[in-house]
Design a binder for these strands. Structure first.
Length: 851
RNA sequence: GCCGGAGUGGCGGAAUAGGCAGACGCGCACGACUCAAAAUCGUGUUCCCUACGGGAAUGAGGGUUCGAUUCCCUCCUUCGGCACCA
């Protein structure tokens, strides 16, 4: 056996113990994860941090319970991979460069080194040999490679459009990165503006339906809901309306669907059953057809309205209770179901960004259309009549959106309409099938979800590996020329253009098709591209024949347990799912999903119940806590003080509780009496004491096991505290030194090991003299026989009120329990001599007597 | 407005499957040790009452049940997401 690192120490000195074991574990490669087909694998992953420079308490809160769970799984016999790395590209490093002139590369790698050191104090089971850093060329070579694969799959495209721009970060943002009512930048909080730019997008919408499917995924309900809402699928129909303006050569053949003909305008509706009630049409002011259809006499009014709409911000325009406004274009459309001519208006309540940018307005059955029709005195035709006839009279006061039957709808009169959406609604399905047969329209699904805007006008990111040639357009950099490396000699200027564009030579290259002069793409990639595949780079971070070693992939993937904050619900967690599916179709990845199980931790707030921030002065520095109390106590408190998924405000006094627990465990194990080394009058435990101790130990083991399975870290710790209290009592009763005591000590340390890895190793190896290391021990098995109670206390209720407790043998029959309950004096008192009407015996739990 | 989470002592929180509400800890109070304090150890600690004893209580109100923190309905508060989404 190996030499034990240090002689026993009487007093608890966490700083010495923790450093000693961290060094030994590292020297022994105790946490090295290598393929071992003899064991089931478990890939435990926690979201990688951005190297901001200092580890804060939020990192501890996210990482150490995940580490404890990974350690538990290891003891359960799994071959566990628990890697760590850094999401190292991003704006803060570049902004610091602008401000202080320090190169982002230098700063980032210094920060990483600093954070690595701090992370080592956690005593986590990271396999550092698998560390991945997204800003290193060995990593971003493959980020670029993945871009090219997406391009080859037809999933990367360039488009000119009005995109969100953060004026503070000086870059575009994806839709997911614009948050809140004021539409601010997710990173810096600045309200975004719109800019028309030519940008790279990934066709994430192609996977919209697949991304809505969470079958067999053990993800938190919240994230599933957020993603579902974000994608927001809505079922309906596209319907073609012919424009009846005399300016166009109207083809009178109604059944012909000619998509190139601008005189046919498509609208999206979720209510095709209300087509007969469409009494006018509304275009978004930005709709490209507006200029073509507007008649001469309406031109000036329309142009003025368009200009006014353009001046408004998206927020002003989106204000829900704003009064509806609009102007008539002078043009008419023909309702395809009844050939009626209906007016075409423009109004800012119709958005160009949703559906087709034009709607059929059914004022009788849509609140917005109703308000608009009332204001401009447009016709309102009822086409859904409520089943209850009395409601009929109200139909002119407000739009009716409830169930009923179709009226004023020709052959469909009398068709039932429910409040269900899509094909589940009998009215909708009937009309859908009919319009499809008539060639008027077709079933259609609309999504709120948008393609992923990937271009960033910044330096510190992975270059987009594309080359533009005057004659051959955009082509990827040949794969054998990857990586396209970032030049180091760039100037930091917040110009709104990528610093790469301002570099004198970097962008000049040759066209991969013709060899002629060409230019590189100077924008870089959204850093979420880097984090969409980092779980794959961990598999083989030094591998240079591909993004990952296939053998490692086949053994470790998919990720079994993924943990992280909920703030990434519609960003990283959606991007990485899209990425996996796109790469699966490219033959790179396998399986339906990259991450099987997802758990989200909550947030640690400041003691003032506010979000922690430097400006509020309420931040908690984990380094200071570790220095003061030791990592084990900090870990234990992190797991103990809140429900992990909920989070809670920090309480600097509360930590004293787990500090005391750790110290009392130390005392319990290092006291000579505890080890049975001293003869003492207390060492004379009765059979009963020993039996009771074993019972409590195995009951606790059962509970702690379940708690680890369920990520209930707070009750893991509280159960261990409870058992410790029992062990102190058992020692008082003379249990020390008995077999039951020795078993209790062993099981106790094994249960404690995932929470407090250092002290449990020290006590296990040096005080109990057990073989190193406790972290390679197997999780103990519950002795069910030992957990069984001899006698049980049964509460007795009379008319639902607790009146007494009776003690009966555990194996007592229902009749015996009933008899014991009725024999109770207190119970008799409340019966007042009356015969009970009913006596319910819940076996082993409770007796309920009804008088 | 729509969708989702959460409401339990002074505080964080606990409660397999509908069965003793408040485990565990913080804080507080009292006691032991001490010249004293800290630390440590012990005891107590939901609220109300004429306190041996009884009553109320898990956001509010109703329902199902012998029995509800747990299941159902209505509502309130709060946090998060979405929102003139057609």
């Amino acid at each position: 056996m190996e030499e034990r690192p240090q002689a026993k120490d009487k007093s608890y000195n966490p700083q010495a113990i923790e450093k000693k074991w961290q060094d030994k574990w590292e020297a022994d490669k105790l946490y090295r994860a290598v393929i071992d087909t003899s064991k089931p694998k478990h890939y435990a992953l926690t979201m990688l941090p951005y190297p901001s420079g200092d580890l804060h308490i939020g990192h501890w809160y996210a990482i150490t319970p995940s580490d404890a769970r990974a350690r538990y799984m290891r003891m359960k016999g799994y071959n566990v991979l628990f890697p760590m790395g850094f999401d190292a590209f991003g704006l803060p490093a570049e902004n610091a460069a602008i401000k202080e002139g320090i190169h982002p590369m230098k700063r980032t790698f210094e920060n990483i080194e600093r954070m690595r050191k701090q992370m080592r104090t956690m005593g986590a089971m990271f396999d550092w040999e698998r560390e991945a850093v997204s800003a290193s060329p060995e990593y971003y070579k493959w980020t670029e490679w993945f871009f090219i694969q997406l391009f080859k799959q037809g999933l990367a495209y360039r488009k000119m459009s009005a995109v969100d721009w953060c004026p503070n970060c000086n870059t575009t943002l994806a839709r997911e990165q614009v948050w809140g009512d004021d539409r601010h930048c997710e990173r810096c909080g600045t309200p975004v503006i719109k800019k028309n730019l030519d940008q790279w997008f990934f066709k994430a919408t192609k996977y919209a339906d697949e991304l809505l499917n969470f079958d067999d995924m053990d993800w938190t309900q919240t994230v599933k809901t957020l993603q579902t809402n974000w994608i927001d699928r809505s079922e309906g129909a596209e319907v073609k309306f012919r424009i009846a303006s005399n300016q166009s050569s109207v083809n009178s053949n109604q059944s012909e669907l000619n998509t190139d003909d601008w005189s046919l305008i498509t609208v999206f509706t979720t209510r095709p059953d209300t087509l007969w009630g469409a009494t006018f049409m509304v275009f978004s002011p930005e709709h490209p057809l507006v200029d073509k259809i507007t008649t001469e006499e309406n031109k000036s009014a329309v142009n003025e309205y368009k200009a006014q709409a353009a001046r408004q911000t998206e927020i002003q325009r989106g204000a829900v209770d704003k009064e509806k406004t609009g102007v008539f274009t002078g043009a008419y459309a023909i309702n395809p179901v009844n050939q009626k001519h209906i007016q075409i208006w423009i109004a800012d309540y119709v958005m160009m960004s949703y559906g087709t940018g034009a709607i059929m307005a059914v004022p009788a059955h849509d609140e917005r259309d109703f308000a608009f029709a009332k204001k401009y005195d447009l016709p309102i035709i009822e086409v859904i009549r409520p089943d209850v006839e009395t409601l009929h009279a109200t139909s002119l006061q407000a739009a009716y959106i409830g169930a009923g039957e179709m009226v004023n709808s020709d052959q469909f009169n009398g068709t039932k309409v429910s409040t269900e959406k899509g094909r589940k609604n009998p009215g909708i399905v009937t009309v859908l099938d009919w319009i499809a047969a008539q060639g008027i329209g077709k079933e259609s699904i609309n999504y709120r979800y948008r393609d992923w805007l990937i271009s960033r006008q910044r330096y510190w990111g992975a270059p987009i590996p594309m080359i533009h040639c005057e004659t051959h357009g955009w082509n990827p950099v040949p794969e054998d020329q990857l990586p396209v490396t970032l030049p180091e000699d760039v100037e930091w200027r917040p110009t709104g253009e990528s610093p790469l564009k301002l570099h004198p030579t970097w962008k000049n290259t040759i066209c991969p098709i013709c060899g002629g002069p060409a230019t590189r793409e100077t924008d870089t990639m959204d850093t979420f591209m880097c984090s969409s595949w980092y779980h794959l780079r961990y598999l083989s971070p030094k591998y240079d024949q591909g993004p990952f070693d296939q053998a490692e992939y086949d053994y470790w993937m998919p990720v079994d347990t993924y943990t992280g904050g909920i703030e990434h619900a519609t960003m990283h967690l959606l991007y990485t799912r899209f990425f996996h599916k796109a790469m699966r179709d490219a033959g790179v990845t396998k399986g339906k999903e990259p991450m099987i199980q997802l758990r989200n931790q909550g947030m640690v707030l400041g003691e003032d119940n506010d979000k922690m921030s430097k400006s509020k002065g309420n931040v908690v520095a984990p380094d200071l806590l570790v220095n003061k109390y030791g990592a084990d106590s900090v870990r234990a408190y992190i797991m103990f003080f809140a429900r992990w998924e909920m989070g809670a405000p920090w309480d600097s006094q509360g930590i004293e509780g787990t500090v005391r627990w750790i110290r009392r465990v130390w005392t319990l194990f290092t006291d000579s009496v505890s080890n049975g080394l001293e003869t003492d009058e207390r060492m004379n435990a009765s059979d009963e004491v020993r039996k009771n101790l074993r019972r409590k130990v195995h009951q606790t083991l059962r509970k702690v096991t379940r708690n680890f399975e369920n990520f209930d870290f707070n009750t893991v710790v509280s159960s261990l505290m409870e058992l410790m209290n029992e062990m102190y009592k058992a020692r008082e009763a003379g249990a020390a030194g008995t077999d039951a005591w020795k078993e209790a000590q062993e099981i106790y340390l094994k249960m404690m090991a995932p929470v407090a890895p250092h002290i449990s190793e020290e006590l296990w190896t040096n005080h109990l003299g057990k073989p190193y290391s406790i972290h390679t021990q197997l999780w103990p098995a519950v002795d069910e026989e030992a957990t069984r109670e001899d006698s049980i206390e049964i509460p007795v209720q009379v008319n639902g009120k607790l009146r007494d407790k009776v003690i009966v043998p555990a194996e007592a029959s229902e009749d015996e329990i009933r008899a014991a309950a009725l024999a109770s004096e207190a119970v008799q008192k409340y019966l007042e001599g009356k015969e009970p009407r009913k006596v319910i015996v819940a076996k082993g739990r409770l007796v309920s007597i009804v008088v």
